[in-house]
């Protein structure tokens, strides 16, 4: 393939490689797990992926804007701790919504702290957010010193149960497609996020985020308020961390002061798998969500292919590495082929 075309194709559709990879890993998974597409199995899988998927969306937006957020996992822990502290099995519906609203505000406040430090005090994003992550993790431990808490079963049930679409039950063809009759709730959340993004992509705000991340100096001289935009990306990331915590809490039904800590690096890996480069200005959130699903499906594959116990971690890491190296490798090979063609005589 022509190098310029290849690059353009990837740049315009940064998620393309992720999509290809997603199809491949799902097929590999499916070849050993034929119930993969059963609504209940699909639901079980996707509801576990959802918290990280939401988190990766926030991370992707920060990275596109030219930053990085190493505190998202700790924010999830903090919000998870707050949720199980404020919501007990006896909490009434209105109070639950209030608690969720407050947690969203806490997430955005945490993001604001990061944003001010990075955008206005001009501190290095990696170091700054690494440092603030300890603040958030410390707060989580203070609020919830040991694992515990319980959500109302209505709330956990809402997250876990398939949504049955009665209207489709009698329509021919559709009624035979079980996944349309019984929809995992996580699908609806993902659909809402994607639709929202599709709309936001057409606004100035997102246009500015891309421009600031791509070439901050150019954006500034063009009259874009780069600092405010960068601040905004961290606040958005904080909001998504709070929503990821909500999903995680509904998924687990309880809280732990370290529940989200391991999610930070996974969120970054997912963003990169999704075709977003760490230097900013390019990529998107659909790819990031695909990256999350890829990471999850890789775990399934390891499980269903009976990888020997002692090599599971190694195989997991190797597959992720190969996936990350994929686009670069393809580019390298296409370059080699081009060189070979040019040097190998005048045929054609």
């Amino acid at each position: 393939m022509n190098q310029a075309n290849f690059r353009r194709l990837l740049a315009r559709n940064s998620y393309l490689f992720a999509l290809l990879l997603l199809i491949v890993v799902v097929l590999i998974n499916y070849s050993r797990q034929d119930n993969l597409f059963d609504p209940s199995v699909l639901n079980r899988n996707i509801r576990v992926f959802l918290p990280l998927a939401i988190l990766a969306v926030g991370q992707a937006i920060v990275i596109i804007g030219g930053g990085i957020d190493l505190s998202v996992g700790a924010m999830v822990s903090l919000c998870n701790a707050l949720l199980v502290t404020w919501i007990t099995p006896e909490t009434a519906g209105g109070d639950i919504l209030l608690a969720i609203g407050l947690v969203a505000l806490v997430g955005m406040a945490a993001g604001l702290l990061n944003g001010i430090a990075v955008a206005y005090l001009r501190l290095q994003p990696i170091v700054t957010t690494y440092a603030t992550s300890f603040i958030f993790a410390g707060l989580a431990l203070t609020i919830l010193p040991r694992p515990g808490g319980q959500l109302p079963s209505d709330m956990t049930g809402l997250y876990r149960r398939l949504i049955e679409v009665e209207a489709f039950a009698n329509i021919p063809i559709i009624q035979d497609i079980s996944i349309l009759r019984e929809i995992p709730p996580a699908f609806i959340v993902i659909a809402i996020i994607l639709l929202l993004w599709a709309f936001l992509r057409q606004t100035r705000l997102v246009q500015y985020i891309y421009a600031s991340g791509d070439n901050a100096e150019a954006a500034y001289t063009t009259g874009i308020p780069v600092q405010r935009i960068r601040l905004g990306t961290y606040v958005i990331s904080g909001f998504f961390a709070a929503m990821a915590a909500l999903a995680l809490t509904m998924s687990l039904g309880s809280g732990s002061p370290t529940s989200g800590d391991a999610m930070t690096l996974d969120s970054i890996v997912a963003v990169v798998l999704g075709g977003t480069r760490l230097r900013g200005g390019q990529g998107g959130i659909a790819g990031a969500m695909m990256g999350v699903v890829i990471l999850g499906v890789i775990r399934n594959i390891i499980s269903f292919y009976d990888v020997p116990t002692w090599s599971q971690t190694l195989v997991d890491a190797l597959i992720i590495l190969i996936a990350l190296a994929g686009p670069g490798f393809v580019r390298y090979v296409s370059d080699l082929i081009r060189r070979y063609r040019l040097q190998g005589g005048r045929a054609a």
Partner: peptide
């Protein structure tokens, strides 16, 4: 100095004074 490489020519030309529809959409 002031171009954003990943964006198209028209996106770059109109960056920060994009014509809008309904006030919100590019």
């Amino acid at each position: 100095l002031s171009l954003v490489p990943e964006m198209s020519i028209s996106e770059n030309i109109w960056l920060s004074h994009e014509p809008m529809r309904y006030g919100v959409r590019l």
